[in-house]
Design a binder for these strands. Structure first.
Lengths: 341, 341
DNA sequence: AAAAAAAATGTAAACGGTTACATTTATCAA
DNA sequence: TTGATAAATGTAACCGTTTACATTTTTTTT
C-alpha cells in the first residue's frame, strides 16, 4: 500500500529543464516570470498532479495561515451562526480554521488555548466558558504578539479587543417591554453573573425596573448553568414563588423554551399568567407555542466582524491595538409569548 | 511590533552545549536519552518557552496529523453531535480537524474536497450534500491512498467504507408504528430520493404499508429541500389533500416541527387529526407541542465510530479495505405527537 | 553594432525538525 | 588494566518551499 511519491517543484523543474526558483515563482503567479514559461509550468503541474506542500511553505514563511477559535459549546444556534460568519470571512481570505470547544469548563479552555498556541495559530477568536476565572491562559499569545479577539462572553480587563452587543440596553429593552405589558413581578433567569453578558443584561433589567418605579427584588433573580435540568429546576423555583411572578426575562432561548414547557405542564398560561422574553433569536423561537419574544443577536454578524477585524490586523490593514470594543446591532423581537394586550 | 524570535532546538542545544539530535530525541521522550539530560532539556525548554514547530516536523515526517471533515450543514443538531463525537476521538489521538461545510451545494462540496486534498489531510470523513451527483471529487484521495469514510449521506458505489444506521428498518418502524395507531393515509415528507438515507427510509415506509395491506399512493409522497420555506409549502400541499391524511412520517425533526406549527395554525389537531413522526431526535422534539415522536439517530456514536475506524486504519491497527458498512444502533422513540390511543 | 537598461532565470541559503549512521563515553568481566 | 559491550551523544543529510542576490537573456537606445 505504498503511497505514490508526491510531485515537488524539483520534479517539474527537471522535467522542463529550468530552475526550481522559476517554478516556485510561477506557481505563485509572480509577474516576474514570463507568460510562456508560466503556461508550461502550470500545465505540467496540473498534469503531474502537483500540490503545494503547505508545511514547507509555512516553515519557510514563518506563518501558519490558521486562525484558532475557542467557543464554549457547539450545540447552540448562536454559536454555529458565529462560526458560519467566521468561516465565511476566513475562507475568503485563505485562512484555515481550528475550532475547539471548552464544554463550559475552565480547565478545558486552558488546554485548548495551550494547544492552539503550540499549533501557532496566526490569530485567535474566543468566547469564554462560564467557569473561566481569569485570562492568564491568553497571556502567551500576547507575549508573542498573536492577536486575540473575544466575542460574546468577554472580559474587558487589559487591552483586549472585544465584539459584543449592547447587553445593558438589551436587558433594559426586554424588561421595559414586559413592564409596558403591565408586568410588575418580573423574574430574571440568567447564568453566572461574573460573565459580562449576564451581568450587563442584569444591569439593564434593574435599570428598567428602577426607571419604572418598580423595586428590585432579589428573590426574583435565578441563576443556572443553561442545562436542561437546571432550566427545569429554575422553573420549579419560579412556580413556588408566592405570589406567582407575572413575567420572566430569560437570557437564553433554549432555557426559555424548557421553562415554557415546564410552566405549561404546570397549567400556567403564557403569556396570560406569565409573559416570557428570551434571548438570541434561535430557530426554536417560532416553533414553541406561543412563539417566543426574544432579543435578536445576529451571530453571523458577530462572526464576520470578529474575523474581518482579525484578518485586517494580520494583513496590516487597520490595527487592533487601538480598537477596544465593537458593538454589533441587536434588537427586541416581540412575539406572542410576551403580548398580554 | 516585531515578534520575539521563536525558540528552536538549536537554541536549547547551544545553551546546554549538546547536539540538536539529543534535544530532538529528548523532546520526543526517546528512551535512548539519559534521564539526567532529558530533565535538563525539559526544564530549559519550559523556561525558554519552546514550542514544537509542527511544520518542520510534518515536513520531515511527511504526514499532516490532520483529519478533514466535510458536512452538508453546521446548523443541525445531528451534525454538531457527529462533530462532537469525531472531535472527541481525534483529539485523544492527537489529530487536528479541518471542518468544511458545503451548504448542500455540489460545487462547494467539490471545492471543499479539493481544498482538503491540497491541504493533505491524512484522512477524510464526509457526508454528501443533497445535490451531489457523483463521487469523482473523492477519487484523488483514493489515488493517494488517503482513507475516506462516509457517514449518514453516503453512496455505496465502489469500495467505500460507510457508517450509517439501518434507514430501511427505521422507515419501516416509524410507519408501522403509525399504522398500529390506526393511521391509513400516511404522508411521507422527505428529501431528494437520490440520497440513500431518504430512499431507504422511503423503502421502509413502502414495505410497512405493503405488509399491512395498505396500497402505496404516490400522491402522499412529498419531496422538499429541508428549508423552512419548503417545509411550509409541503405542509400546505398536505392540507390541500382530500381526504386529509391522518399521519405524516417526516424524515427530519426540524421540518416536522415547522410542519406541526403550520398544521396547528390551520386548526389541525395533533395527533388526533394527523399523527406525526419525525427523524433524528433533536433537542427540539420535547420542546414542541405535542412532543414529537422520532427516530433516535445518535450522532455522537456515528462520529466516534467513524473517527476511531479512520484513526485505527491510519495507525495500522485494523484496515478499512475490508470494512464495507458499519451500522449504528438506532431506535424509535414514541411521544405524544403520534399517540392516538 | 555596441552599450545600457529591463526582463527573465538561476544559485544557494535559509526555515526547524528527524534519524541513519558514526563516534564517544560509561559499565562490566576477565 | 584492558578489551568488549552497552549506553549516550553527535554529525550531517533530508523534507519542499521562498527569496536575496547573481547571472544570463532580451529589448531598447544611441
Amino acid at each position: 500500500m505504498s503511497k505514490k511519491k508526491e510531485v515537488t517543484i524539483y520534479d517539474i523543474a527537471s522535467a522542463l529543464n529550468i530552475s526550481i526558483a522559476t517554478v516556485s515563482r510561477a506557481l505563485k503567479n509572480d509577474p516576474v516570470v514570463s507568460k510562456r514559461t508560466k503556461k508550461k509550468i502550470f500545465d505540467l503541474a496540473e498534469k503531474m498532479g502537483y500540490r503545494t506542500n503547505h508545511f514547507a511553505r509555512n516553515l519557510r514563511n514563518q506563518k501558519t495561515n490558521t486562525i484558532g477559535v475557542i467557543v464554549h459549546e457547539l450545540n447552540s444556534n448562536f454559536i454555529t451562526s458565529v462560526l458560519a460568519g467566521i468561516e465565511k470571512v476566513t475562507a475568503e481570505a485563505g485562512y484555515d480554521l481550528i475550532i475547539a470547544h471548552s464544554s463550559e469548563s475552565f480547565s478545558k479552555e486552558i488546554a485548548n488555548a495551550k494547544n492552539l498556541f503550540h499549533k501557532r495559530v496566526d490569530g485567535l477568536i474566543a468566547s469564554l466558558s462560564l467557569e473561566t476565572k481569569n485570562l492568564d491562559h491568553f497571556k502567551s499569545f500576547e507575549e508573542k504578539n498573536v492577536p486575540v479577539i473575544f466575542f460574546d462572553r468577554v472580559e474587558q480587563e487589559g487591552n483586549n479587543t472585544v465584539v459584543v452587543i449592547d447587553n445593558d440596553k438589551c436587558g433594559y429593552q426586554a424588561t421595559q417591554h414586559l413592564i409596558q405589558q403591565g408586568c410588575k413581578r418580573i423574574v430574571h433567569i440568567t447564568s453566572n453573573l461574573k460573565r459580562n453578558v449576564y451581568s450587563k443584561r442584569f444591569k439593564g433589567y434593574k435599570e428598567a425596573l428602577a426607571d419604572n418605579g418598580i423595586p428590585y427584588d432579589e428573590k426574583l433573580l435565578i441563576i443556572n448553568d443553561l442545562s436542561e435540568r437546571a432550566a427545569i429546576e429554575s422553573t420549579m423555583k419560579m412556580l413556588k414563588m408566592n405570589p406567582l411572578p407575572d413575567a420572566a426575562f430569560i437570557t437564553n432561548d433554549f432555557v426559555a423554551a424548557i421553562c415554557m414547557r415546564t410552566l405549561k405542564e404546570n397549567n400556567i398560561k403564557i403569556p396570560e399568567d406569565i409573559a416570557i422574553v428570551g434571548f438570541n433569536n434561535d430557530a426554536i423561537c417560532t416553533l414553541v407555542e406561543p412563539a417566543l419574544s426574544t432579543i435578536n443577536y445576529p451571530g453571523i454578524d458577530v462572526g464576520e466582524v470578529a474575523a474581518s477585524n482579525l484578518i485586517n490586523h494580520l494583513k496590516g490593514i487597520g490595527n487592533l491595538q487601538n480598537t477596544n470594543t465593537i458593538i454589533i446591532r441587536s434588537n427586541l423581537i416581540i412575539r406572542k409569548s410576551s403580548l398580554k394586550k
